[in-house]
């Protein structure tokens, strides 16, 4: 066995009690393996990633480890990131499109601390971007890795709760149930009633869950120059989309897929092509719309683009 010993200090950073050094040989300093995971675990994850890239959209089971953050908070993405990082990497972490949401901050500082890698908020500077719920607006380039945090990797899960059944359905490309569901949506609502985690077909074979990104982001997955990796820690699955793969959102000829965003332009940078967050301003229900991608918005603003209420940007900085 060549597994690395890692001290427990990740868990007790807030604890002021002293351990009994007689019985437990705790190291007071942080001495993690690079990017926290031991090398054997990283190898296991890399093997799963390679298999996933070789079979685009196929969910590869992997022996997900218990991470020092809860399941459901990005443990799959964190393990994939940890297995991919090299010391030269520059990491960006977003949640809801923003670099400064609390969980993004927490994950970014985890890698800054355990891997000592550079971090950035700029999409085009990052070599690896870990995301929850969004794809950046800035087009990704070759050499970049986009790592998605995935809660439920199985696109058929809410139609058939049993893993034993859904694996069979994938093996046989038996996706009729999904089409029936989408068709029933149309007959009931006049629309496909799925606004996020909108299912896609990868390279004409596997139906895949794109993670809970808004369907606005779906087209960005197709023909993407970056490598897209998906990690579901609790559900112990990894899947992937190699660069320039064809990714198609499921639809019908007479009800083609459409992107969906709040109409209008960003109040801060004037972008009319970005996905917008609706911000409630007061108890009268006044609203403003701003880019969900904070890097996209501030970069545009720096380049002189303005929106209706750009003065808010300036006063905040001042």
């Amino acid at each position: 066995m060549t597994e690395q010993i890692i001290t427990p200090s990740a868990n007790d950073k807030n604890d002021t009690t002293t351990h009994n050094p007689e019985t437990h040989n705790f190291d007071a300093t942080d001495s993690y393996n690079f990017a926290y995971l031991d090398e054997q675990t990283k190898r296991m994850i890399r093997r799963a990633l390679l298999k996933a890239l070789a079979i685009p959209g196929y969910q590869v089971p992997f022996a997900s480890r218990e991470m020092p953050m809860p399941y459901g908070w990005g443990t799959g993405g964190v393990q994939v990131t940890a297995a991919c990082l090299t010391p030269d990497d520059c990491v960006k972490v977003i949640d809801q499109g923003a670099d400064d949401t609390t969980n993004a901050v927490s994950i970014r500082s985890f890698f800054a601390r355990t891997a000592g890698v550079r971090t950035t908020e700029a999409t085009d500077e990052a070599s690896l971007i870990q995301t929850r719920h969004r794809i950046p607006e800035t087009e990704l380039t070759e050499g970049q890795l986009l790592v998605y945090q995935v809660p439920i990797p199985e696109p058929l899960r809410f139609l058939e709760p049993r893993e034993t059944e859904t694996r069979k359905m994938h093996a046989l490309s038996e996706y009729g149930l999904m089409h029936v569901k989408l068709y029933e949506d149309i007959s009931q609502h006049g629309h496909i009633a799925t606004a996020y985690a909108y299912p896609v077909n990868v390279e004409g074979r596997y139906v895949m869950d794109p993670s809970p990104i808004p369907k606005f982001d779906n087209p960005k997955m197709s023909d993407c120059a970056a490598i897209q990796l998906f990690g579901a820690g609790r559900e112990q699955r990894i899947y992937a989309i190699p660069p320039y793969s064809h990714v198609k959102s499921l639809d019908f000829e007479d009800y083609p897929f459409d992107r969906l965003r709040a109409p209008g332009a960003c109040a801060l940078c004037g972008a009319d092509d970005s996905y917008l967050d609706e911000v409630i301003m007061d108890d009268q229900g006044t609203r403003m719309y701003v880019c969900s991608d904070t890097d996209y918005c501030s970069t545009r603003h720096e380049r002189g683009h303005v929106g209706d209420q750009s003065d808010l940007f300036d006063s905040e900085e001042g």
């Binding site: 809860p70 459901g72 443990t75 809970p212 808004p214 369907k215 609790r234 969900s292």
Partner: peptide, 18 residues
């Protein structure tokens, strides 16, 4: 507990889409 409690994390992008 991780998955049950994770719904307190921000989900406003998905909510916006809905």
């Amino acid at each position: 507990t991780g998955f049950v409690e994770h719904i307190k994390l921000p989900h406003y992008v998905d909510f916006q889409s809905e």
